[in-house]
Nucleic acid binder design. Sequence first.
DNA 1: GCCTGTGAATGTGTTCACAGCG
DNA 2: CGCTGTGAACACATTCACAGGC
Lengths: 206, 206
Amino acid sequence: MRYHKIADETIRRMPIYLRGLMALSQEGHQHISSNKLADHLGIAHWQIRKDFSYFGEFGTPGVGYQPEVLLEQIRKILRLNCNHKVVIIGAGNLGSAIMAYPGFHHYGFQIVVAFDSDPKKIGKTICGIPVKDAAAVHTIKRRKIQMGIIAVPPAAAQQSADALVKADIRGILNFSSSYINVPKRVKLIDIDIAMDLARLPYYVSA
Amino acid sequence: MRYHKIADETIRRMPIYLRGLMALSQEGHQHISSNKLADHLGIAHWQIRKDFSYFGEFGTPGVGYQPEVLLEQIRKILRLNCNHKVVIIGAGNLGSAIMAYPGFHHYGFQIVVAFDSDPKKIGKTICGIPVKDAAAVHTIKRRKIQMGIIAVPPAAAQQSADALVKADIRGILNFSSSYINVPKRVKLIDIDIAMDLARLPYYVSA
DNA sequence: GCCTGTGAATGTGTTCACAGCG
DNA sequence: CGCTGTGAACACATTCACAGGC
């Protein structure tokens, strides 16, 4: 492990490697070369080796990497080697789809509670996740939950973020298509699918 | 307009500016400075001016930008000044949430048809969008549709992409959490919400 | 020969500092 | 005096080329 500041782009790619290794490891390979992984992921082989090199030496020259060893290392780097409880605010269409999304389990995430302000939804469960009153977000404080997902309309985004910050959340995944302001100690990742679609025409008709 | 190759990062930010300008323009401002826009978006003011400068001179020194003029310019740059028809493959939880998502309209997108392989879904409509047999993707060829969204399980992702490519689609938004291979002429944007969540713990417990 | 790990070179993107207009 | 637009400096990220281990 180096004392370099690791590049954000490297961190962004680590879960991709994780995904690829999980797939290739299930196929039962004893050793995986950066070349094989590269083909499977659409990333250059030297980029993969470079990224790993920031954290240590995980492979064997002439042979490759052991999938299980590498998986464990990446999980440790990304702090995915223990389970994480997550809360979600917003149990509408998008929120419900996120709750139903099977992909989170692979990384050890579990959505434990949802919040919504719609009285018709409060008290129900969606995919086994209880929906509570949005006014009760502060109650998660004692449960040591570090991460929250915001899936509410833009107008309610900032107040949802404020509630999460007050409840000592440390990281937020923001699906609401609006900018939200959080203290620097809270890591914010924004996802806006309409904006991703919005830059396609530029490339398509170029 | 310069003959520079425009940076991808600049293009990625343009829809953010669009979103911010739409919001501020509705509030009825006559002029907007890069500083005001910066506060509203969480982006540095010089970054905003720099990005605009790659395309031309849209503002007035000492005054600022006229929201309507700037909106029009950005729409033209991103080719959003006309409506775009979009197809979606996969009408499950995620696909349905995307179809119900109101945000696309702001950028002039309309999802005109969905495809799924589940016989129970074929023939129904979701949010007014007809669901057709996934084997019939080729029928869109005569409708001049340029963009497609993939929202199917990983195992079906590549064949969905192949079908879209065969139907002369030019851009793909890939929500399936797997790497898909497309010809270079097709622009591919990958979105994997589980992977975005997967890098939060790194920053949260750092 | 095949594969990893890495310094050096290159390319890309961000930040600064300020000229010049309104 | 405030604001835009931009060259120049800087920081960051990717790509190359190859030393060295298996």
